[in-house]
Nucleic acid binder design. Structure first.
Length: 435
RNA sequence: GCCGGGGUGGGGUAAUGGUAUCCUUGGGGACUGUGGAUCCCCUGACCCGGGUUCGAUUCCCGGUCCCGGCCCCA
């Protein structure tokens, strides 16, 4: 037996139906915001990712040399590819440029809850500006994408890298030391940070300022406790725009330190408290990556959603609906009726309904049992008596009610009967049986 | 990379130093148009490798995979 690679998963029909419905809900949110889909390669030159994130990430990537001796890597994320695409071929398009993507990513990590070696992300990048409106648009899309899936329990935290960054760069002349300090803040290692500042003779109350800012959390009002800066004004405007769009429960968190290396302005994270250790479902912020890849400096803001974690969070929140791959199952009562069953199923399928027919040459009772186990909404019974009148029997598998209808109108009748209103994107999602 | 807990048919389980229980699913039959029931039959498992032993699914070691946590999280 060949084992599935560590940290990867197989998805059966029931689970895929759920995943696709969630993905579709997010895609539609992107479309409502005017974002267009892009698809980039699953593998890229390793350099694309090391340029963005540093050489150290090679240890956490699937890297390999291709037959032309080129250093390649399975993508560990998709933002870098999108920006490469932008720099290479889309830099002259009118701004702002609104792009989104969905795809699988790979990281060589130790799997645990909500963490896999192959995982799925949906993300968006808004390229063109760094003003609060841009950030608001992206955060708004992030929140709406999650809401569209039906997820309810999640927290939005928004911060700004610029505040800590400028504080450190102003307080420390030595560039290398400043870089180290930023990395230590990134790691949250304040003990080591205090020690480093002391041994390097950094004067004043820089340490206090840093811990003060990193600990600034709560409503936007707590900004008053921080010295007035351009970043403060930016955040105030951002929160105001979000509020006007009905997004008023965001928390300010200046301690967010997402990859200080390349995020330059606003940063934000969303987590689902019902998940375990890996509860962050989304992360994003504004950055200026394009220069790194040889393009003009252009501001962008983006985010990536962990699709797998959203699925886990949804499962933790509510029961998922039953899965049914078919609307109607056509049952011949005897062998002589089998050929007519095919004619009937073809008509139903032509209507756009999901229909199936007995291929196993089973008895009628076994077929009804099968239809039941598939959670088919209707059985279409094709029998001798019915055919004599050019009709079939529609059996509601839930109620057991039956009625005869002309064979030529069976598909129309089914369509009418099945045309129930859909309340929620997930309520139409079938799931059952097959894992 | 580190720590803890686990691997018995497709799924869920029981017992055991002498190769295995039960449930479920799947296939078939009785059943000759509502049996979606009931009854019967069948397929199908001890994660891999080494060690101890007359004999290992069971005990020991290593590996691997799963679950959870740490680190990390672009």
């Amino acid at each position: 037996m060949i084992q599935r690679p560590r940290g990867t998963r197989d998805f059966g029909p029931a689970e895929m139906a759920r995943r696709r419905a969630v993905e579709q809900a997010m895609r539609e949110a992107c479309h409502r915001f005017g974002f267009g889909e892009v698809v980039t390669p699953t593998f890229e030159q390793s350099e694309l990712f090391t340029l963005r994130s540093g050489e150290a990430i090679v240890d956490e990537m699937y890297v390999f040399k291709d037959k032309g001796d080129r250093e390649m890597a399975l993508r560990p994320e998709i933002t870098a590819s999108v920006i490469r695409f932008f720099v290479n071929e889309m830099s002259n398009l009118p701004k702002p440029l609104k792009l989104y993507y969905v795809g699988n990513c790979f990281r060589y990590e130790n799997p645990q809850s909500g963490r896999y070696r192959e995982f799925f992300q949906l993300g968006a990048e808004l390229i063109g500006n760094e003003n609060p409106e841009t950030d608001a648009e992206v955060i708004s899309l992030a929140v709406e994408s999650l809401r569209a899936t039906g997820l309810q329990d999640f927290n939005v935290r928004i911060g700004h890298i610029g505040i800590l960054k400028s504080l450190v760069l102003e307080g420390i002349d030595d560039q290398a030391l400043a870089g180290n300090v930023l990395r230590m803040i990134d790691k949250g290692d304040f003990d080591a940070l205090a020690q480093t500042l002391e041994t390097n003779g950094v004067t004043g109350n820089l340490m206090e300022s840093i811990t003060g800012i990193a600990g600034t959390k709560g409503s936007i009002d707590v900004l008053q406790s921080v010295d007035e800066t351009k970043a403060n004004e930016h955040l105030r405007e951002l929160f105001e725009i979000l509020k006007l769009q009905g997004i008023d429960d965001c928390q300010l968190d200046l301690g967010i330190v997402r990859g200080l290396d390349y995020y330059s302005g606003m940063v934000f994270e969303i987590d689902a408290p019902r998940l375990g250790a890996e509860k962050q479902v989304l992360g994003g912020g504004s950055y200026t990556l394009s220069e790194l890849f040889g393009g003009e400096p252009v501001f962008s803001t983006g985010f990536a959603i962990g699709l797998d974690r959203v699925m886990l969070a949804l499962e933790a929140e509510k029961e998922l609906p039953e899965y049914s791959p078919i609307d109607a199952y056509v049952v011949p009562t005897e062998d002589a009726m089998r050929k007519y069953a095919f004619a009937i199923v073809a008509k139903i399928r032509a209507k756009g309904l999901r229909a199936d027919v007995d291929l196993m040459r089973r008895s009628m009772s076994k077929n009804l049992k099968y239809a039941s186990s598939m959670a088919a909404r209707y059985a279409v019974i094709v029998g001798k008596d019915e055919m004599a009148k050019r009709s079939v029997t529609l059996r509601d598998m839930e109620s057991g009610e039956q009625r005869q209808v002309p064979a030529d109108f069976a598909a129309d009748e089914l369509e009418k009967a099945l045309n129930a209103p859909r309340k929620h994107p997930l309520s139409s999602v079938p799931q059952r049986g097959i894992p």
